[in-house]
Design a protein around this nucleic acid. Structure first.
Length: 202
DNA sequence: ATGACGATTTACT
DNA sequence: GTAAATCGTCATA
């Protein structure tokens, strides 16, 4: 399948967040194995005006540098001392907006994902719906961390997005973003999107 | 140099 | 439903 173009990403984060639903996130491990999942849940972060965004108020630090760069690159950050989350940078340089990938429907490399997710846990075999149903879960399943922050998704070899099925607007559910209660009015804005009825949503 | 705080997940009462 | 885990980052001093 062909990859998404630079032009596809260079749009406002709300449009991109909706357009990314149904596309396929692909991770190629160092040993060459391919892991892939269909994007089923996203959130838009609107940049300097968005109190929930890491670039709110124009904050530009080493951590958030990727968000300030060109569209179609990855912004991957570490939080709570143990988790990573993956974003797709939207728009263009100087407009630091992004789309958080919150959940995937696993398509390829499920056993490898399970191994990444199992970590130090009981013997219970994780269900498919537990592999990528959350932003930090999918980062773990795909073995994504700060080393891949800033990766070019359009040209890169280890992380990219392929054209998937188109999702009709009528199948997209909209609601408030998760885990940003501190963001005041912005906490209520409908900037989270997911595929209706999909069991892999967080 | 210090301290408060997460765009979360998991285990447990 | 509640709470612990766990540490890089950034604002403050």
């Amino acid at each position: 399948m062909p990859r998404l173009t630079r032009r596809f990403h260079a749009r406002d984060p709300v449009t991109l967040a909706r357009a990314l639903l149904g596309q396929v996130l692909v991770r190629v491990l160092d040993d060459g194995e391919r892991l892939a999942g269909r994007i089923v849940e996203t959130e838009a972060y609107l940049g300097v005006i968005d109190r929930a965004a890491h670039t709110y108020g124009g904050r530009r630090t080493p951590r958030t540098e990727s968000m300030w760069g060109p569209a179609g690159h990855a912004y991957i950050y570490f939080l709570y001392g143990m988790h990573h989350c993956v974003n797709v940078v939207a728009q263009g340089p100087g407009e630091p907006t992004a789309v958080l990938i919150r959940a995937l429907e696993p398509l390829e490399g499920l056993e490898r994902m399970r191994a990444h997710r199992a970590g130090r846990r009981p013997k219970a075999r994780l269900r498919d719906t537990d592999l990528c149903s959350g932003p930090a879960k999918l980062a773990q399943a795909l073995a994504l961390d700060r080393r891949l922050d800033g990766t070019d998704l359009v040209e890169g070899e280890h992380l990219f997005i392929e054209r998937g099925r188109r999702v009709p607007a009528g199948n997209i559910v909209t609601g408030p973003r998760i885990g940003i209660a501190y963001a005041g009015d912005w906490a209520l804005r409908p900037l989270r999107f997911h595929m209706h009825g999909n069991p892999h949503v967080s």
